[in-house]
């Protein structure tokens, strides 16, 4: 069986995708209207990474999972009420903005510093997990930047599958162009895996896991260090919602054959 893994998952919160978002200009750069009031969810692809991490840790005895998160402490506390019941993990909190307009480079440096400070973390067994892109900045670079800062030179982006071979090597499927997977083999950790959807459904809430997690989560939230990340050196000229709202023509009570003819003509036009 493989040696235990030390899995660090980077992930934060994003506004619930069903919310209407509106940009506003602030002193520190752009932000969202009523940002502090918007209901938040765990960033979806980071969530998949967390569930995959927990699943791997369950399979390889002795493995540990940390969730390293940068976000406003009060909102993280709310988020933990749901996430903590899903899978076991230890939390590392950085109290700061989760804005999509914060520069990925500043965020990555804060995350890398926090990871370096995790007591007992075996960097030779480290699998650095996270989402392949956030639902806020959507840049897809943060994990790569953290990985470089930690000196990890085996990196994978858009991962849907990780298998452990009998000799402990990592077997990885990454999304590439045209609906294909690139299949790679990496001899051993450390490695960076930026996850896409993976293959696991969202775990059901388990109050026992919640209680166990909360014992470490609450103290971590209380002692969370404030960090300042922003967008130094970036000049945002405009941030706009798309103006285009289509003038929809609703076609009803028309026979299917006539609709089909119209669609075929449109496709061929």
């Amino acid at each position: 069986m493989a040696d235990p893994f030390h899995i660090v998952v980077c992930g934060s919160l994003v506004p619930d995708p069903l919310q209407t978002l509106e940009p506003v200009a602030g002193a520190q750069g752009p932000g969202l209207k009523n940002e502090t009031m918007l209901p938040a969810v765990l960033d979806p692809w980071a969530g998949h990474a967390l569930f995959e991490a927990a699943n791997l840790a369950k399979q390889v005895a002795g493995s540990q999972v940390w969730l390293v998160t940068l976000g406003p402490k009060a909102k993280l506390q709310q988020l933990m009420m749901t996430i903590a019941q899903k899978v076991p993990f230890q939390l590392v909190v950085l109290d700061g903005t989760a804005s999509g307009f914060a520069d990925a480079h500043e965020v990555a440096t804060a995350l890398a510093t926090a990871i370096q400070g995790i007591p007992g973390l075996d960097r030779n067994r480290l699998l650095l997990f996270g989402g392949c892109a956030s639902a806020s900045r959507d840049s897809g670079v943060t994990l790569q930047l953290v990985g470089e800062q930690l000196g990890i030179r085996d990196q994978f982006l858009g991962v849907d599958e990780l298998g452990i071979e009998p000799d402990g090597a990592l077997h990885i499927l990454e999304r590439v162009e045209g609906g294909q997977y690139q299949v790679s083999r990496c001899v051993a950790p450390p490695a960076v895996l930026a996850w896409a959807t993976g293959s696991l459904p969202e775990p059901h809430n388990n109050p026992q896991v919640g209680m166990m997690n909360m014992r470490t989560i609450m103290p971590q939230l209380q002692k969370a260090k404030p960090v300042t990340v922003g967008c130094a050196g970036i000049q945002y000229d405009t941030v706009k919602l798309p103006s285009q709202r289509r003038d929809t023509r609703v076609v009803r009570d028309v026979p299917a054959a006539d609709i089909a003819r119209e669609i075929v003509d449109w496709l061929k036009a």
């Binding site: 709202r245 289509r246 003038d247 929809t248 023509r249 609703v250 076609v251 009803r252 009570d253 028309v254 299917a256 054959a257 609709i259 089909a260 003819r261 669609i263 075929v264």
Partner: peptide
């Protein structure tokens, strides 16, 4: 129908796509 498409056909997709 809320301004997100140019045309919405209110119809059974099975029937329409059979014809298409």
């Amino acid at each position: 129908a809320q301004g997100k498409a140019d045309v919405v056909y209110v119809a059974d997709a099975f029937e329409v796509m059979r014809n298409v």
